[in-house]
């Protein structure tokens, strides 16, 4: 039984269909990547999965329940940390923001310290987000998401706004957290290598009106290494296949 299922999702903006019958099932504990070119509605699909955006037709189920609002099991992580972190709150209070409405300020702050330690940011609680580097800010956003103890994380290209080396660093950190916490993950990205390196399966999203056209098993052994995994024949083969699919336009 899948943990997150998107069933025949349709979405139109101002009468223009952008998504047609997108169907996808993410298993419990699975790392699912949704790969697609820019502007194909990846974020739209993810926001629908998070209950942040209502679909025009179709059903989203999380843990077997059809959802119409953001469910407590799921947390959405945004691409632009500068927009989703609150600049008037310290790093600690940004993380605490995820839980203080449920647990109160004291408990929320204690949890914030714990999750900040897990992303390697102990001692940065009193800083403000804008005093940190981009990679560190994205760690704060990840810590905030983890503080809510979600069963499923919905990642909207969270590694795309940082430089290449920082990205590898965040990948390693995130894979570690994912395996230790036994999270279910749905990641949308346009980065083929990122999708292969991180995911168990990769769903390919077509151009508008978009839908899931194919699903690929990655099948690479874990734990994965940022350098050697990328040199495996299996990795390169899948990379080539996926790039060919992405570059093949419907009108070409």
């Amino acid at each position: 039984m899948s943990f997150l299922s998107l069933d025949a999702i349709n979405k139109s903006f101002a009468g223009v269909p952008v998504m047609r019958d997108a169907t996808l099932a993410v298993r419990e504990g699975e790392f699912m990547a949704v790969l697609g070119p820019s502007g194909c509605g990846k974020s739209t699909l993810l926001q629908i999965a998070a209950g942040l955006l209502p679909p025009s037709a179709g059903t989203v189920r999380i843990a077997g329940r059809a959802i119409t609002a953001p469910p407590p099991e799921a947390v959405y992580v945004f691409q632009q940390y500068t927009r989703s972190l609150l600049p008037w709150r310290s790093v600690r209070d940004n993380v605490a923001f995820a839980t203080e409405h449920r647990l109160g300020k004291r408990r929320a702050r204690a949890i914030a310290e714990e999750t900040l330690a897990q992303v390697g940011l102990s001692g940065f609680g009193d800083h403000f987000p804008w005093q940190l580097s981009g990679g560190m800010q994205q760690r704060v956003a990840i810590a905030r998401a983890l503080a809510a103890e979600p069963a499923i994380l919905l990642l909207d290209e969270p590694f795309s706004a940082v430089d290449a080396l920082t990205r590898l660093d965040l990948h390693a950190l995130f894979l570690d957290i994912w395996s230790r916490r036994k999270l279910t993950v749905m990641l949308v990205t346009h980065d083929v290598e990122e999708a292969i390196y991180l995911a168990d399966r990769i769903a390919l999203l077509t151009y508008r009106p978009s839908s899931i056209s194919e699903i690929f098993e990655v099948g690479l052994p874990r734990p994965r290494d940022p350098i050697t995994t990328r040199a495996l024949p299996q990795f390169l083969e899948l990379r080539q296949t996926l790039l060919q699919k992405l570059l093949a336009r419907p009108d070409a």
Binding site: L52, A69, P70, P72, A74, V75, R83, S84, F97
Partner: peptide, 22 residues
């Protein structure tokens, strides 16, 4: 920022609290 408001919603923070704290 629309992202800041959506952030509040994804953590299940209610409308009044979002208005006051975001």
């Amino acid at each position: 920022e629309a992202d800041a408001l959506a952030m509040g919603r994804t953590f299940g923070i209610g409308a009044l609290r979002r208005a006051l704290f975001i």
